[in-house]
Amino acid sequence: MAKVVLEVNELTTRYITRFRESIYAVDHVSLKVESGKSLGIAGESGCGKSTLALSLMGYYFAPLHYTSGEIIVDERNITGLDPDEVRKTILGTEISYIPQAAMNALNPTRRVINFIEDVIQAHRPGITRTEVYAMAKERFELLGLPAEVLHKYPVELSGGMKQRTVIATSVILSPKVLIADEPSSALDVTSQKMVIKMVMDLMDKGIIKSLVFITHELPLLYNVTDDIMVMYAGQVIEKGSAQEMVFDPIHPYTKALMGSIIVPEAGLRNVKLAAIPGTPPNLKNPPSGCRFAERCKYVMPECRVASVELQKASEGRAYRCLIPEEDLRKAYKHEK
C-alpha cells in the first residue's frame, strides 16, 4: 500500500455566529489520501465541502473554529500545533489551497511576481529576488503559462488566466497535498478544460503528491479523481472509488445526485430532469435521525430516531444508511 499523505480522523469544525450559535459544518469527517492518489469531494451547495477544504489545512480563523479530530500530514500530526507554526511549516509547503473565487484571490494592487515573492518569503526568509523570479518562471513555464504574466497586475489578466495563475502560485513551493475548491466552476467550458488539465498535470509532473478536488459536479470527479466522497449536511454520506460511486451508487442521495445531472444530448427537452426535492437541513439544529430523511424516497420511521453511522460496504467503501446495500440496489433496479 502506498504511503498515506493526508489522513483526517473524525474532524469536526464549526462556525460560531455573532449570536454565539454553533454550526457544525464539518461533522466527524474522516478521509485518507495516498501518495499519487486524488480524492474528490462532491455535494450540493451548503453541504460543508468548502468548509471541509478550509478545515483540512489546520489553520482556523473566526468565524471557523476547530472542535475535535486530527489531521495528519505526511505522518506528522498537525492538530493542536501553534497557528504560527502551522502557517510557517504547513501552509503552502505541505498543504496548499486553490480558492473557489480565483477572480478575486489575488491582491489587486500587487503584481503577480511580488505576491509570489511574499509567499516564498513567508517560508524561506532571506531568499533573493533573482531566486524568486527563477523559481516562479520555471514553475509557470512548466505549467504552460507565459512568464510575462508574472509582471502583470491581476486586472490585466483574463478570468481563465487568473485562475491558472492562482493555481501556479498555490504550487510554487511544491506542496505535498493540494486542495482545490471548485477551481473551474466560474469559468467558461474552454477555460474549465484548461484548468482541469492543469490540475491533473500537477500530479503527472510530480509537483504535488496528492490532490483533494472539491466540486458540485459529480461526473467531473469521475474524470479527475481516483476516489469520491459525497457530503451531505456536514457529514460524509458515501465514499468509494470513482468508478463505483458513479456507476454503482449505494446511498439514495448519491443515486439522486447522479440522476440530477444534465447530460447534453439530443432530446434533452423531453427528458424530465430528476432534481432532488426539498432542501438540505438547517445545520443550526440538525435533525436527530438521518439528515437526509426528509428528502429520501425510501425513508422509514426508524430513520428519524437515532443518528445513522457510516456502514462499511467493501474495502474503502462506506455509506450512511439504515437500509442494507443489497436492498437499495434491488430498489434501484426495480425502478428502472
Binding site: L54, L91, P99, N104, V119, A122, H123
Partner: peptide, 14 residues
Amino acid sequence: NADYVKYARFLGIK
C-alpha cells in the same frame, strides 16, 4: 474580508 486576504492567509503569508 476580501477573497485575496483569505487566499494570502492560506498560503502562509504573515
